[in-house]
């Protein structure tokens, strides 16, 4: 509520409200961890319960999953570079790296949509069996998060264009960064817990 400025801190931490928003977002991420943990648990419990539909092993393609992993990891790296440019005070650098992150996010989504359509054509859909319900909801929830992140990024890019680097816009970029890295962490668990295990068990 107060606007005490503290010049030794990065711009996003410079106001009380900025600090509180960042703390609040960390707590939100904790809630998101609980949400994804529940989805992973559900997936694990339903593992192998494929009824009459294809097994995971028959459909998973290591190439696509690995490509998606590299794309998302790279986007997390460029997102980190965006925050770095922001801290350096370079609006241009920040916007360029955010654009790259955005493009990589969209590419990731493209692959995911292709993957889902491909599985559906092979007879594995949300309605096929408990296992595939668990799979589509877990990966789909992550995909929806990525989609929302992309929309959010577009909104913030417009605001950066309008307002430049301020305590408020920097805070928004920083929080978006936290969100994006969090999605990356979730994906690493999906890659190992769903795809790698699904291909061998």
């Amino acid at each position: 509520m107060t606007e005490n400025n503290n010049n030794t801190l990065p711009l996003e931490y410079s106001t009380e409200q900025g600090q509180m928003s960042i703390v609040g977002f960390w707590i939100f991420v904790a809630a998101e961890v609980a949400l994804f943990a529940t989805l992973f648990a559900t997936y694990a419990v339903l593992f192998g319960r494929t009824a009459d539909s294809p097994e995971a092993m028959e459909l998973f393609q290591p190439g696509i999953a690995l490509t998606m992993t590299f794309i998302l990891l790279t986007s997390s790296f460029t997102c980190g570079l965006a925050i770095h440019s922001m801290r350096e005070g370079s609006l241009k650098g920040l916007m360029i790296f955010l654009f790259i992150t955005l493009a990589l996010g969209l590419t990731f989504l493209g692959f995911e949509i292709y993957e889902f359509v491909h599985y559906a054509s092979e007879g594995a859909t949300l309605q096929s069996s408990a296992y595939w319900s668990g799979f589509f909801i877990l990966t789909g929830t992550h995909g929806v998060h990525v989609t929302l992140g992309i929309g959010w990024m577009i909104a913030i890019l417009i605001q950066l264009k309008q307002r430049g680097l301020t305590a408020v816009t920097n805070r928004k970029v920083f929080i978006l960064g936290l969100y994006w890295h969090f999605l990356d962490v979730v994906w690493i668990f999906i890659f190992t817990g769903v795809y790698l295990i699904g291909m061998v068990v």
Partner: peptide, 22 residues
């Protein structure tokens, strides 16, 4: 709640008796 909503409206099999749901 979301899983049961998806079960009921979009036909998934989390908590159903069919499709090896639990």
């Amino acid at each position: 709640l979301a899983l049961m909503t998806v079960d009921r409206i979009f036909g998934s099999h989390f908590f159903t008796l069919a499709g090896e749901g639990l």
